[in-house]
Design a protein around this nucleic acid. Structure first.
Lengths: 332, 332
DNA sequence: GAAAATATTGAAAGCGCTTACACTTTTCAA
DNA sequence: TTGAAAAGTGTAAGCGCTTTCAATATTTTC
């Protein structure tokens, strides 16, 4: 069960070149020889080894999706899109999980240097511009999903618009003291969403109140975690008067916030962000991002570009949808 | 940024053998040469290509985790365990996602033939004995997680015991008409759980009532889906008298079942299976499986066996824990 | 200070495949 | 028939690395 092209060639009484041709569907093989080789190969359970092919061809027919901690619904949706796009080709999808214990950029450098794949999809990997620049120098085909870098292909949701939509919804429903539960300062999506929130208030003629913009102290996953939302909400509820409505940077924070409210028998209107699976079940209103779509379209662009030397850069932004469920209304 | 060992050798004024030695931490290099090579390599951003190394060494330092549709919390937990185990080594983890559109065994055959990895972790891949036999013939190191085959390493939860625990809980709390919401007949875990349920009733002196064992008609994911639970519950509620309590084969079915109950303003005690993330939030009682642990221990066994020619087979069974939350009590 | 022992290096073969090129066989028009 | 074109096949080089073995340089020993 572990034979090489030589074994097949010997058994079929042909040269290895011919065996190779059969497996590469070259037209230059007589149908008689082809049949013979195919039979022998089938019988002996032969398949070309990926490594040897990769080396000889300088092409592996592998796409690698690089994701951070495989732990959330967002990636899963994106991965489904990727998977579906790849299924239609003869590429394989390998997934690489970036650990939280080491700087992402270092892990990427190591990974890219090894050249395991023909193309890379970076899903929700957030690097600085200089880090992306460094990564681009590896000269590999790649597309960013859920992050942006001006010199790369990317598919991203417009975070600013997302926060705007949520904020505007509350404004239009008569709320004024709208709080924002935010995440780590350095997080780029967090910063953009914050901007969107502030601009919307300003556009509406209100003066943003810094004391209504809070984050919890628990910082793992850049503050996008349940405890963080809980803590943030506690801080908000210490203020008088209480805010009238809450915009959250993630569903998971919203969940934490809701439990903080419950403890005080409150239920302020709140909107999350992400539309994680849970959201539907607990009736959380939220901003939904087109995850599947980004995965699929991003992959198609990547596949399309592999092999071309100077493909043109594709960049696309999506606007998230506001999904209204029960938590956004006054008496939820 | 795309240079080979030759480039480094030339630049450093040594032979490629020496460069290779430096990268393989061979002791037979003078520290002067080592430094020189390291500097050049760093400067030129060199890293050995995985494919070439794999071919030359016949070892890739890659472990591949094979999972079916990356869509559920169970895998994610297992993957976390795997990841943590691998982090402590210099292996890389690549993940391969089995598609639902093609027979799993065929995908595995294709994958194993390519020899991308040194060892394989099959997570929740359920094959028949003859199929696993076929797969074993590839003569690759592997461990099964969440499935069993007598000739392989495996780490599994005892499905029968899981169902027993849930059923016994209800019996001990005075229920008699206990329904079982099951999945596809052919699913092995489903069959085992069913056995556990039936045996427990029998041991308790009751005669299992076939009409209380139902499944919905929606069959994707082997019936482990929300609609299936919903439909099953509807069937149960058509019967008079209604069952007194419900044991479910998965949390997701339990969720479906609960919404069916809600529609009729009922809330029978129910226990799910899996302890998905959602369960905690909706207060679903459930059977928790040691997913992280299985992932980690399974990986350690695999890593340990790689390289050995006749490693001894490791097989382990875990008993799931009953997690009591609100849905299992009378008035939830 | 020379021989022996040891440390360091390089040349070359090989891992399993692809593919350019050369060679042989078949086909077919004249 | 013949010969040129077309089709089929094999030889050999190469993909980027590891590793054995032989060669050379350095150290140690007395």
């Amino acid at each position: 069960m572990s034979n090489t092209i030589y074994d097949i060639a010997r058994q079929a009484g042909v040269s290895i070149a011919t065996v190779s041709r059969v497996f590469n569907e070259s037209p230059n093989v007589s149908s008689k020889t082809r049949k013979k080789v195919q039979n022998v190969a089938k019988e002996m359970g032969y398949q070309p080894q990926g490594m040897a092919q990769g080396l000889a061809r300088r092409k592996k027919n592998v796409i690698m999706a690089v994701v951070p901690l495989l732990s959330n619904y967002f990636f899963l949706q994106v991965l489904n899109g990727i998977q579906d796009a790849i299924s239609e080709t003869n590429f394989e999808l390998h997934i690489y999980n970036v650990k939280s214990s080491e700087k992402p950029v270092d892990q990427l450098k190591r990974l890219l240097g090894r050249r395991w794949a023909d193309g890379y999809l970076f899903v929700s990997i957030h690097l600085s511009d200089s880090e992306w620049k460094m990564i681009s120098q590896f000269d590999q085909q790649m597309v960013l999903i859920d992050d942006a870098y001006s010199a790369c292909n990317y598919f991203q949701v417009n975070n600013k618009q997302g926060a705007r939509k949520a904020t505007r919804y509350f404004l239009e429903h008569g709320f004024k003291r709208i709080a924002l539960i935010t995440a780590k300062e350095e997080s780029i999506p967090a910063a953009k969403r914050r901007q969107g929130y502030i601009q919307t208030l300003t556009d509406w003629g209100l003066t943003p109140d810094e004391s209504l913009i809070v984050s919890g102290d628990t910082q793992y996953r850049d503050g996008f975690n349940e405890e963080n939302g809980y803590e943030a909400m506690q801080k908000l509820l210490e203020q008088t008067p209480n805010p009238e409505a809450v915009v959250c940077m993630s569903d998971i924070q919203a969940i934490g916030a809701i439990s903080a409210m419950k403890e005080q028998n409150l239920s302020l209107p709140i909107i999350g962000y992400d539309d994680i699976q849970l959201a539907k079940y607990i009736g959380l209103s939220t901003m939904r991002q087109p995850m599947y779509k980004m995965g699929k379209e991003g992959t198609n662009v990547l596949l399309d570009q592999i092999g071309k030397d100077q493909p043109k850069v594709v960049q696309k932004e999506y606007i998230p949808d506001l999904i209204l469920r029960s938590t956004s209304s006054q008496q939820n």
